[in-house]
Amino acid sequence: MSGMVVVGLFEGIEKAAKAGNALRALPLAEDRITTLSSVPLPDRAVTRDTRPIRFPRVTLVGWFVGALAGLALALGTYLLYPLITGGKAIISVPPTLIVTYEVAMLGALAGTVIAGFREMGLCRFRTRLIHDPRIQEGKILLCARVSGDEQAKRAMDAMKTAGGIDVRPEEGEL
């Protein structure tokens, strides 16, 4: 995924959108264009997210893994050492349901965190990531992954024409 990325800062979403259109017209595939912004931009405002969002499945998987763990914790421990209390049955269903539910929810939360972080690409401390702190002033950083100097030059031109500030090539990952 690593390679040359052309970046440009844009003042306001309109200019960024214009630049986005120009990049697409180069042509540059949708998945090679992205933005960095301090606020979430609506999809298709500048660029479109082509990657499907898959991690909610892991939430479900986490739920079931948690449910199994909860079941083992409740039911399993009753059966490992059957000790009668209060003259009641060894297998007691409602407490098992409660414990299973709680651990299942914990599993779902854990699954969401782990898979969500992974899919968002967080915790990549060793890789050089494209970033520009100036987005915190309200600017939008438009990034285009290009292959070859020829394409880079055309992308830079397109960005400059659309009103990009500090348009430059960068080495790094998105």
Partner: peptide, 18 residues
């Protein structure tokens, strides 16, 4: 010495049992 002792079920550590 209840046969269905309510004290037993609520103990979290089985300190009281039949």
């Amino acid at each position: 010495q209840c046969e269905r002792a309510p004290c037993e079920t609520v103990c979290p550590v089985y300190a009281t049992y039949h």
